[in-house]
């Protein structure tokens, strides 16, 4: 198992495997994004209280889930980099940050647009919203720290430490609506109970969540492949690949 772990850690192996996987992820994410968006925005029923404005959840919920989930994956990459000093993990961390930041930004913006007609406010210093804003700053901090430090080794380790330590924010986001009085409602989904919405609503939502995951992996792989080519530009295999 360790053997496989280290083999996948080689940039060249990753480049080859990801090259084969990429078309499937691209096709899958485009297909599911179209299916989920049309289903959710046009065919799913409106909400009995909020009417059609509840449809923004088909964008808001998946982007919020991916914002947190991408941070977790990035932090795991950071831990792998710190412990095993695998260079590919550093590439993964660096490439995940801008995508995660964009998804967090999207979650905040769509939440704000949803909040105005339903709650009556664009923004409130509510625990859920504030902790999500902190998540955005963590992503931006990681991007800034990397570009501020000279030397790839040191910058990589510093960003990895920041990413790993920032994981503390994730349970705060998750439980903010349970621990404190907040404007944001509690979660509609849990592992132990039935969803608080009918299947005709949560099915398109599920499609959108899977689509966002596929999109994230697509974007992540594409960025990583480009970064690998830059970092490995002096190696034989990249020279051959480019000249071929």
């Amino acid at each position: 198992m360790w053997n496989w772990f280290h083999r996948l850690g080689s940039p060249r192996t990753f480049f080859e495997i990801s090259g084969r996987l990429l078309p499937w992820f691209q096709a899958g994410s485009v297909l599911l994004l179209v299916v989920g968006a049309v289903w959710g925005l046009a065919f799913a029923p409106p909400d009995y209280q909020q009417g059609n404005s509840a449809r923004i959840m088909y964008v808001h919920v998946p982007s919020s889930i991916l914002a947190q989930s991408s941070y977790m994956m990035m932090a795991v990459a950071g831990a792998v980099h710190l412990i095993w000093r695998i260079k590919l993990a550093d590439v993964a961390l660096q490439c995940a940050a801008p995508i995660g930041a964009s998804l967090t930004f999207l979650a905040l913006v769509t939440g704000s647009i949803w909040g105005r007609p339903t709650w009556g406010t664009w923004w409130e210093w509510d625990a859920r919203m504030t902790s999500t804003l902190v998540l955005l700053f963590l992503f931006l901090g990681i991007i800034a720290l990397r570009s501020a430090m000279e030397g790839r080794e040191g910058a990589g380790r510093a960003t990895a430490v920041l990413a790993v330590v920032g994981v503390v924010n994730l349970p705060i986001i998750k439980y903010s609506v349970d621990w404190w009085n907040s404007l944001h409602q509690t979660s509609s989904f849990s592992f132990t109970e039935k969803p608080a919405m009918p299947a005709e609503m949560w099915l398109p939502l599920l499609v959108m969540v899977i689509a966002y995951y596929l999109f994230f992996f697509t974007a992540w792989m594409m960025r990583m492949r480009a970064e690998i080519l830059v970092r490995e530009r002096r190696t034989e295999w990249v020279k051959q690949l480019v000249s071929a």
């Binding site: 029923p45 409106p46 909400d47 009995y48 709650w119 404007l183 409602q185 919405m197 005709e200 609503m201």
Partner: peptide, 18 residues
Amino acid sequence: DEVLAKHDEKYMPPEVAD
């Protein structure tokens, strides 16, 4: 001087609510 509406985590189609 300001009133905000909260909504709960339940969603359903209008027909079901009726």
